[in-house]
């Protein structure tokens, strides 16, 4: 469904992605792990067209991702994104945040969109917060609203960019719970995360990225329990046993 073929990306003189080739099948959950600055988030941002890439090709369902082409709108309505810092619209209510895309981008009928928005808020456990504004919510609640906003577009896949990194530890579980439910329902997901437990339990595959290249990839449990590459072993040791 999502194909990356020899993707290169530089910021100035720094090459962040040095030839990424990977694919994500329909219904698959792929977690991307790796040290800070390794290029994990950049991959997601390139898939969604928030960043351009210099070489190679990214396609979503056969459609080439080109952030300057009109087709990017079509791709973005099929592949939603959830951000580390939620990025909700603070001047709109929770329900308005959720329905903004379907109503103004996809131009769906208001009544239908409102009904779906309320159902999605119920799905992420926030039905009673529909009329609240984002700053009135906790971080975990805001991230669940962001997930509902992504789902409201009825996407074929969702990209999660470190969705729990900005949360207090006690709020991480509620967001991971919603994501786990989505995975169980068959949503195609690409998740950049430091939550190794989530990756082990929920992901089908894990990619370990370091220095802009995929160092190792494979089934989640195998890669996380028995990493083959020394860099993967070293990274997992540092993440799982920081002291």
């Amino acid at each position: 469904m999502i194909e990356l073929n020899d993707v290169h990306k530089s910021f100035g003189k720094v090459e962040v992605l040095k030839g990424i080739t990977a694919s994500v099948e329909k219904g698959e959950v792929v977690c991307i792990i790796g040290p800070s600055g390794s290029g994990k988030s950049t991959i997601l941002r390139c898939i969604n067209g928030l960043e351009s890439y210099d070489r190679g090709e990214i396609s979503v369902e056969g459609l080439k991702v080109d952030r300057d082409a009109p087709s990017i709108v079509n791709i973005r309505t099929q592949v939603s994104m959830v951000f580390q810092r939620f990025n909700l619209f603070p001047h709109r209510t929770v329900l308005e945040n959720v329905i903004e895309g379907p109503l103004f981008v996809k131009k769906e009928p208001r009544a239908q969109v409102l009904e779906r928005g309320r159902a999605l808020l119920a799905q992420v456990g926030l039905a009673e917060k529909a009329d609240a504004h984002p700053p009135q919510l906790s971080g975990g609640q805001q991230q669940r609203v962001a997930i509902a906003r992504a789902l409201a577009m009825q996407p074929k896949a969702i990209l999660f960019d470190e969705p729990t990194s900005a949360l207090d530890p006690e709020l991480v579980g509620e967001v991971l719970g919603v994501m786990r439910k989505l995975a169980d329902d068959g949503m195609t997901m690409v998740v950049v995360t430091h939550e190794m437990g989530f990756a082990r339990d929920v992901a089908d595959r894990v990619l370990f990225i370091d220095g802009g290249v995929i160092v190792e990839q494979g089934p989640a449990k195998a890669l996380l329990n028995q990493p083959q590459h020394s860099r993967t072993q070293d990274f997992l040791r540092r993440v799982l046993h920081p002291l």
Partner: peptide
């Protein structure tokens, strides 16, 4: 971030 969020839903 808000501008990126808007872009990411196709605005």
């Amino acid at each position: 971030g808000q501008i990126e969020a808007a872009q990411s839903i196709g605005m």
